[in-house]
Amino acid sequence: MTASKNDKKHRTTGRPTLNEVARRAGVSPITVSRALRGIPSVAEELAQRVREAASELGYVANPAARALASARSQTVAVLVPSLGNQLFVETLEAIHAVMRPRGLEVLIGNSHYSRDEEEDLIRNYLAYQPRGLLLTGFERTESARRMLDSSGIPCVYMMDLDSGAGLHCVGFSQIRAGAAAAEHLISRGRRQMAFVGAQLDQRTLLRGEGFRRALQQAGLYDPALELLTPRPSSVGLGCELFAQLMASHPQIDAIFFGNDDLAHGALLEAMRRGVKIPEQVAVIGFNDLPASSFTVPRLSSIRTPREAIGCRAAQLLLALIAGQPIAEPVQDIGFELMAREST
């Protein structure tokens, strides 16, 4: 029997082809492509046959070749500042759950809270012509902004809001969230309130700004009660900063930590030192990580909608990719104050 052109290509490259998978499964090549991309329009029985044929042949799709053939990729790029932070993991899971059934692959970039690293990631990903980009916040280099503006690729910004820049974004007001923390502590009768922030990314600084404004409005702001460090946020750092703050300002009766992991560390250090929470010092965190409802005492925190942000941002990006009109380019999902035992 005469070998086909595709069979010869297989022997030359050592790789099975999409056409060979189609022949083995008894379906068309386009069905193979759709089935392996997880597009739900393919009947499950056919999709299973395709998966089995691909497995038997050891077939692996070549996304670069597919993009070249169609003149567009089947990927979206998502840039986050950390993969070690639970809140971004939850957001990424939600994005993947929306994109995968549409046949789109998610490329994840970690900027490590560095604007220069993010600029490099944007440059590299734009070279692959993704269908769209999901970016965290608005703080980036001018070069990165120019690349995004000139690319023509749809972008959606997550975690923060900016109604004045003409951008598409999904998130909540970091300033209002910080103010809510201050208002909660004031309502509990606290008068000597400190703010502790680490990492010092733009979102943390905005939380602190909201906290500061609310204290100023109440006539309770003391600039000496702000403790800021660019070091990465962690439980260990929270222990250290709590001890430092109590040594320098023993009169404080409440602390707002810019991240829950810092607050978790503070609760542990307070226990070691015999500082009663909340009788002596009330403690409130930010993000309401899963462990916060199980600490001793249970931590009050600002709950942020990480999963909802990922889902809504992905849906908004899909609408932009499809060229649909956008009624709400700025989507404020809000936040929730979780008052527990620590305040």
Rank of each mutant, 00 (worst) to 15 (best):
Q324D: 13
P29G: 10
M246N: 06
L220D: 01
T229Y: 10
L241H: 11
G166P: 13
D253G: 06
Q202S: 15
A53R: 07
L215C: 05
F286S: 03
R11S: 11
P230I: 14
T13L: 14
G164I: 02
M246I: 14
T17H: 12
E105C: 07
R312G: 03
A327C: 02
I277P: 04
V50Q: 07
R272L: 10
M99H: 02
E279N: 05
F256H: 07
A165G: 13
L107N: 09
P232K: 03
A224T: 15
L215T: 05
L215S: 07
G103P: 09
L68G: 09
Y221C: 07
D162M: 12
R123M: 03
R66M: 12
G14T: 13
L237H: 09
M338A: 13
M147V: 07
Q86I: 13
C155Q: 15
G84T: 15
H96S: 14
I186S: 00
R190N: 05
L318Q: 02
A127W: 00
C311V: 08
L134N: 09
L262S: 06
A35W: 00
I30H: 11
S248H: 04
S342C: 03
E328V: 10
G152M: 13
V296M: 08
S293D: 13
V27Y: 00
V60Q: 14
P40V: 08
R24G: 00
